[in-house]
Design a protein around this nucleic acid. Structure first.
Lengths: 228, 228
DNA sequence: CGCGGCTTTGATGTTCATCAAGTAAAGTGG
DNA sequence: CCACTTTACTTGATGAACATCAAAGCCGCG
């Protein structure tokens, strides 16, 4: 892709790179690799040594923790322009989460040493990254507590609204994950995910055919979310 | 307290300030206020405008979220040397959490503008703070998921071990909070907190007299935590 | 075409929240 | 310092929400 060839003009560039000089962007360009990832492919495995900053340019990926009893737990779903390795990259030597592509995706990998130097050199950039990390962490914490305080119906409603408004900007979309993965995201069993989505369908709140979802009564769905 | 009079020689100083020059420490000294906080007193209220970096020098404080239905939720308990306002301070204009002293405590408040300038000026300092935020957020996220994946017995065991090993470094300690607060920390009801602690006492795992706890069988307690 | 994983529905059981009621402890005003 | 009030703690009984188990249908894939 032509526009991808320099970072300066990259159409996927995050505003977080705005504070970098042309020279610094050039340095990043020389020390990055862009890769295409197929749906279902693992981008990083928990436990691997961290060597790079990873930036999502296209697609959708899940970050998950492998629980002690094999029970997997999805922490968050990252979108384009997210630094997907961010939660571990600055504080740990190894990845804490496994990252997997939910749909065909594209990432840029920037050498970690280069990135660190840039953070040291450029205080404005560093401060922006600080804000970004802070926000990301806040969001995850809030999201987790919000899920936790809801009953099962409320949880399903929450993620349906979330997908619609925060990920797809549409009342119709295809769920990018299996029922089992949804269950892992909102801490319930696949059986109950199905049960409750079927209920919503029967009650005319949504339409559902395999992975395709159409939200019919958004107001009601939000009410279920907020009261649940 | 004499040693408190300059930041450079402060005995409560965090290693996070190590990267600051003498001049910068002097600037902080001129722009900070040290305050004593009584047990139970509120340090900041959620919703208040953030004007300061707050640093805990002595004591123990809780950070809590006020839920929608009045249900309070304790996010974490901060110790001396923690930047207790950290999760909101760089990304938000207002505090997201209410912070309350669990025991008599002391905090330093550093003007936010001064702090921001220092982060911009000093890349090493900024990078250290980045790591610190990253770590703090990671810890909270891990802790939350860990609590969430356990049954009630496992949760009680978890916090008892935590208090013993991470906060008091002793097999005997006084719980710095009520049963209700413990419940808010690990997402259960006060009734069940009591019930399960009584069970532990009856089974000879701990000794319990009002707020005083003595761990008798730490191995078993950890087994309960890990299997729960 | 047949196998394995994903999905769906129903029946059962367990865990935990809620309710209720009583006791102990701690703060409050005279 | 004592009566009084309030708040924290404790125990038991009940019910609801949800996980687990089981079985059958579906779909994609070799």
């Amino acid at each position: 892709m032509e526009l991808n060839q320099t970072c300066k003009n990259c159409k996927f560039r995050s505003h977080l790179f705005d504070k970098l000089s042309d020279e610094q962007l050039e340095t990043i360009y020389k020390n990055k690799k862009t890769t295409n990832i197929e749906k279902g492919a693992i981008i990083v495995n928990a436990g691997e040594l961290i060597r790079e900053f990873i930036y999502l340019t296209e697609g959708l990926v899940k970050l998950q923790k492998i629980g002690i009893k094999g029970k997997e737990q999805i922490i968050t779903i990252a979108r384009p322009n997210d630094f997907i390795s961010l939660l571990s990259v600055l504080s740990k030597d190894i990845y804490e989460y496994t990252i997997t592509a939910l749909v065909d995706s594209q990432v840029c990998r920037i050498d970690l040493g280069v990135m660190r130097n840039m953070l040291r050199e450029n205080g404005e950039f560093s401060l922006d990254i600080l804000r970004y990390i802070s926000n990301t962490a806040d969001d995850i914490i809030n999201h987790t507590y919000s899920i936790n305080s809801k009953n099962l119906r409320g949880r399903i409603a929450l993620i349906l609204v979330d997908f619609s408004e925060s990920y797809f900007n549409s009342l119709e979309f295809n769920l990018p994950m299996s029922r089992k993965e949804i269950a892992e995201m909102i801490d319930m069993t696949p059986e109950n995910v199905i049960r409750i989505m079927s209920e919503f369908k029967k009650d005319g709140v949504i339409n559902l055919r395999s992975k395709h979802v159409e939200i019919i009564n958004m107001d009601l769905l939000k009410k279920i979310r907020d009261l649940g």
